[in-house]
Amino acid sequence: MVDVRRVKLPGVGVLHSFVAEDGGKVGVIAHRSGANDLITFSDAESPDEVTKISIRLNEDEAHTLAELLGGTQITESLAALDQIPGLSIDWFSVDYDDHIAGQPLGAPADHGLIGLTVVAVVRGEAANPGPGPDFKVFPGDTLVVAGSPEKVAKAFDFFRTGTVAARQALADAPPGT
Score class of each variant (00 low, 15 high):
Ala20Thr: 11
Asp90His: 03
Glu150Val: 02
Asp48Val: 14
Leu69Pro: 03
Asp48Asn: 12
Glu125Phe: 06
His111Asp: 00
Asp48Tyr: 12
Pro104Ala: 06
Thr40Tyr: 07
Pro85His: 10
Glu49Ala: 14
Phe18Asp: 02
Leu105Ser: 07
Ala79Lys: 10
Ser54Asn: 03
Val137Met: 01
Glu67Trp: 11
Thr64Val: 04
His99Gln: 07
Glu76Met: 14
Leu9Trp: 06
Ser46Leu: 15
Arg32Tyr: 10
Ile89His: 05
Ile29Arg: 05
Gly106Gln: 02
Gly140Asp: 11
Phe18Trp: 14
Ala107Asp: 08
Glu59Gly: 09
Glu125Ile: 03
Glu150Lys: 01
Ile114Glu: 04
Arg123Lys: 08
Asn128Trp: 12
Gly24Asn: 13
Thr40Trp: 06
Ala127Thr: 13
Leu38Lys: 03
Ser33Trp: 07
Pro133Gln: 13
Gly102Asn: 12
Gln103Asn: 14
Gly147Glu: 00
Arg56Ser: 08
Gly106Met: 01
Asp82Ala: 12
Leu57Arg: 00
Gly71Phe: 00
Val94Thr: 06
Val50Cys: 04
Ser93Trp: 08
Val7Asp: 13
Val12Glu: 15
Asp22Thr: 09
Lys25Pro: 01
Phe92Glu: 02
Lys25Asp: 05
Asp98Met: 00
Ala35Pro: 04
Trp91Ala: 12
Leu38Glu: 05
Gly86Asn: 07
Val4Pro: 01
Asp90Val: 02
Val94Leu: 00
Leu113His: 02
Asn36Cys: 11
Lys25Ser: 07
Ile39Cys: 10
Leu68His: 06
Leu113Asp: 00
Leu81Asn: 05
Pro47Lys: 02
Gly71His: 01
Gly124Glu: 10
Ile89Tyr: 00
Leu38His: 03
Val145Ala: 05
Asp141Ala: 06
Gly34Cys: 05
Leu65Met: 15
Leu38Thr: 04
Arg56Tyr: 01
Asp48Glu: 15
Lys8Glu: 15
Asp43His: 12
Gly147Arg: 02
Asn58Lys: 01
Pro47Tyr: 05
Glu76Val: 14
Glu61Tyr: 02
Asp37Ala: 07
Gly13His: 00
